[in-house]
Design a protein around this nucleic acid. Structure first.
Length: 492
RNA sequence: CGGGGUGUAGCGUAGCCCGGUAUCGCGCUUGGUUUGGGACCAAGAGGUCGUCAGUUCGAAUCUGGCCACCCCGACCA
């Protein structure tokens, strides 16, 4: 009955798709590869934005907005970057439609309105931003330039999945310019730390910080750093990236500054971003077969209250009793939903709010009115307890903190159990097939080996962990010497 | 772009082989009884059967073109 979703064990990807739709997060639109983010899903994204935006501001960044369209010539300027995205760019070639003379009521592209120069719909904004920075930067006094933008971007993906990979998605992209390489590298790492802190403290998703291999890095970057999370099906998900761009874009767009000594130097750059893909990570890291499990810090509704009543009179009495509790919870900054609909039974409401992942549910009925109590249920453990009505509003904030910690710890121990060290290629393949998760193994550092392993196992090097300890060993594939283990996984 | 599949009410489907304008469930509307874990009964509303053309007295059903979507592959920071 009602909205049931398939179990994770039956079909993980079907479970994910159905959960996204049934929990009212998003749905496919009539536009191929694009999704509609529904109000409930969007409010989670808004909470993410809010927290991240504050973290960016606290580290000295300011927001700005750059255009959606990038002239093709500008896009070409940084070759590596342009080539990397060329295969998935949407292009604007015309600027006008006209009535179809053949078919009434139909529109056709007006061939007379062809653009002199095509416009690329941004797959990322380095080109337009660096060509603007050229105008903004003359002196060392103009640096560092620390700018972020919240925007949509378009990458014409062949196969799409709600939140994880769509043709258009929402993200933020930070673009900074610095006088020295050291400062730019420090910025790159700082923002990686910001992302990791956000993932762990707000999303309750533990992540591994690391550096991408040559093959996996951002085209146009010198180094790409990332945070990698582990999903419940044993596949890895890249949740954020931070790039040290060196002087690549400065040279491509001729962005130079005069130093104190009057000499012209190219600036050093970084860029970093997270996207609505984080929604996918959030969903897949915590949720269960009954629906979403949201960390309190990102839940649009912290507490839902379900009254149990047989008639208007009982509802009135419950409302009178519960209103002060609602008020007290809101005073503490919590978002509270009082679900007094008389069109659905309590059991239906319980199931619905569980599907939507509301962390805490309160239920109050005639029996509670007599006893001065209320039932408190946690979404993460499904535990129920009865509390005194006059104490409940004081205890909820602590309970929410407990839930936030619990789902983080649960995800952390799952993730830790999903890291396996292997020393042979046979073991490597066996672990990937039978257990999944991250595999820590020695690698000779060549892209040939990386490519061979990818081809044979579909596993990629997720990152070279920043905290990897020096350890002499030999590459699982080639047997050549290796100084540290890298993190492999099959990934989203 | 290759290989396979599907298109019937808001959603999920039956019917298609063997032509006669459409089945069932969920949801929706109305009324009543219900309400401490996804209520029940009754009465309703809703479909140019993806699209265009052809065959036929007659097409959801047969034939062809087109379109869209899904799966596998290729591709993918």
């Amino acid at each position: 009955m009602g909205k049931e979703i398939p179990s994770r064990q039956e079909d993980y990807s079907l479970w994910y798709n159905e959960l996204v739709k049934k929990a009212d997060l998003a749905e496919h639109s009539d536009v191929r590869g694009c999704m509609v983010i529904k109000p409930y899903g969007y409010s989670i994204w808004e909470k993410m934005k809010q927290a991240l935006d504050k973290m960016f501001k606290d580290t000295g960044h300011v927001n700005a907005y750059f255009p959606l369209f990038v002239p093709k010539s500008m896009f070409e300027a940084e070759e590596q970057n342009a080539e990397g995205f060329a295969k998935e760019c949407a292009i604007v070639t015309h600027y006008r439609l006209k009535n179809d003379p053949e078919k009434k009521g139909k529109l056709i592209v007006d061939p007379a309105a062809k653009l002199e120069e095509e416009l690329v719909v941004r797959p990322t904004s380095e080109a337009i931003i660096w060509s603007t920075y050229k105008k903004w930067i003359q002196s060392y006094r103009d640096l560092p330039l620390l700018i972020n933008q919240w925007a949509n971007v378009v990458r014409w993906e062949m196969r799409t999945r709600l939140f994880l990979r769509t043709a258009e998605f929402l993200w933020q992209e930070g673009h900074t310019a610095h006088t020295t390489a050291a400062e730019a590298i420090a910025e790159t790492k700082q923002m990686l730390d910001v992302y990791a802190a956000f993932a762990e403290q707000y999303m309750a998703v533990p992540v591994i910080k690391g550096k991408k291999s040559e093959g996996e890095k951002f085209p146009g970057a010198i180094d790409t750093y990332c945070i990698e999370g582990m999903m419940q099906d044993g596949k890895a998900l890249q949740a954020g990236t931070s790039h040290f761009l060196g002087q690549n874009f400065a040279k491509a767009f001729d962005v130079q500054y005069a130093g104190k000594d009057g000499k012209l130097e190219y600036v050093w750059g970084t860029s970093w971003g997270v996207s609505t893909r984080l929604m996918g990570a959030l969903i897949m890291a915590h949720s269960d077969d009954d629906g979403l499990i949201l960390p309190p810090k990102l839940a649009p509704i912290h507490v839902v209250i379900v009254p149990i009543f047989r008639n208007d009179d009982e509802l009135t009495k419950i409302t009178e009793k519960i209103n002060p509790v609602i008020e007290a919870l809101r005073q503490q900054g919590l978002s509270v939903k009082f679900d007094s609909r008389d069109t659905h039974k309590p059991g239906f409401k319980f199931a619905e709010w569980e599907l939507k992942g509301v962390p805490v549910r309160l239920a109050i009925g005639p029996r509670d009115l007599e006893n001065g109590t209320i039932e408190v249920a946690r979404r993460d453990t499904r535990e129920k307890q009865v509390m005194n009505l006059d104490q409940v509003s004081h205890q909820i904030p602590a309970l929410l903190n407990t839930i936030q910690e619990n789902i983080y710890n649960r995800a952390l121990s799952f993730r830790d159990n999903m890291i396996t060290r292997v020393d042979t290629f046979d073991e490597f393949k066996k672990v990937l097939d039978e257990k999944g998760g991250f595999v820590l193994a020695h690698w000779d550092g060549t892209s040939e080996t990386e490519g061979q392993i990818k081809e044979q196992t579909k596993a990629t090097i997720r990152c070279i962990p920043l905290d990897a300890s020096e350890e002499n060993g030999s590459c699982i594939y080639s047997g050549k010497p290796s100084a540290k283990r890298v993190l492999f996984a099959r990934a989203y």
